[in-house]
Design a protein around this nucleic acid. Structure first.
Lengths: 209, 209
DNA sequence: TAGATTGTTAATCGATTAACAATC
DNA sequence: TAGATTGTTAATCGATTAACAATC
């Protein structure tokens, strides 16, 4: 039964469900029970059933879940069928790594353009994606509906770049800078990928008790 | 008062505390109260005091916390003073981005070496870090105490590479591949940076209600 | 049908928040 | 001293787990 508000704990688990279901699907598994999925993911069957019940009834008593169907449902819940568009700000090493290696299309996104200031890269294409000068960002965004801006600029210009994205009306920012963006708008969702936080967590875990 | 077991929710907040305290410190702030810190981080003062009390008593009634001291305590809790060493497997785009741009030393790590198979890069240096052939990995690890292996190899060799790191006795793996590593050892901590999970979370948040 | 397994309600557990005595 | 703020204990809230009737 569709509920109003889904907790952030559940939302954070959804991509993992998708990943596991996709793997099961590609390995040819047709059906799976909540307890089998739980065992393979290191969760409890109860939790999986409870999580899924936030969005609907996808299983069948005595049978379990059809893998292909459930995978599709989770994809749909995640918005993977909504033809999201993205642009990326910053075509340095990390930006290039994402442009050339990250499979945006497998996650329901089309990466439409990149923006940078470096004369050697502006005007070229990286992995099929055109690179424009960042001065033309607002013009581009006015003409092309863009859902997400990927932020891989230097920290020194992160806040200003984010503000430009917000002012141009993007819905989400995927932030790879080490800055806590000073954006507090209900209109814009911010998802941070803080490498340092991740490494420091690992540092804690391997350190002296 | 030092407690036995610290919840993972608390651990995940520690790097953020460090980041904010470091920023306060560098901006010249000398003291801060739990409520002021809470306001600036979007938490409650209660939570901050509760979190810190897992590790000791760092404040003073009527005064609050000395920023420099608390920053140092959190750094120490995170293991930032333990001279951790790391190597990186995979010097492709993403690997290079980390080698050249990620400030390992600011997080208590020294990045000692990179490993790859590509003849054009093996034998060179990237950002001051020597690149060796991955065939020499075990020899290197036998001779150099290494705490963390950073995994930026293609997904197809991720599991095998991780196993080699584990067999050579690293304590932690910082995993950037999109694979859920099939390592289940109490000896090795794994920290995943799953880009796709992060983007799909954002996808959910900006999608139709 | 009998066995299996769901979706959901109730019970438990853990994490966050509130309150306050201690004290700088 | 008086005001401020801690560390900690108690209360609340939310998330996870257990149990079970419904049913394929």
């Amino acid at each position: 039964m569709k509920k109003g508000k889904v907790s952030s704990a559940v939302i954070r688990r959804l991509p993992r469900y998708y990943r596991h279901l996709d793997e099961l699907y590609r390995s040819g598994t047709v059906r799976i029970s909540s307890s089998a999925l739980a065992a393979s993911m290191g969760l409890t069957a109860s939790q999986i059933r409870q999580d899924l019940s936030c969005f609907g009834e996808f299983g069948q008593q005595g049978y379990g879940y059809n893998v292909e169907k459930l995978r599709g449902e989770v994809a749909s819940i995640l918005g993977m069928n909504e033809n999201h568009t993205a642009i990326i700000l910053g075509a340095g090493n990390l930006g290039r790594a994402l442009i050339e290696n990250f499979p945006f299309h497998l996650n329901g996104f089309r990466l439409m353009a990149a923006f940078d200031v470096e004369p050697r890269v502006v005007g070229t294409r990286l992995g099929g994606v055109p690179v424009y000068h960042v001065d033309t960002l607002e013009n581009y965004l006015a003409d092309h509906r863009t859902d997400v801006g990927v932020l891989t600029v230097p920290g020194s210009v992160a806040a200003a770049s984010a503000q430009r994205l917000v002012d141009s009306g993007v819905q989400g920012i995927w932030n790879f800078t080490n800055i806590e963006l000073p954006i507090h708008s209900d209109q814009v969702m911010i998802e941070n990928v803080h490498f340092a936080d991740s490494l420091l967590t690992l540092s804690y875990l391997i350190s002296e008790p």
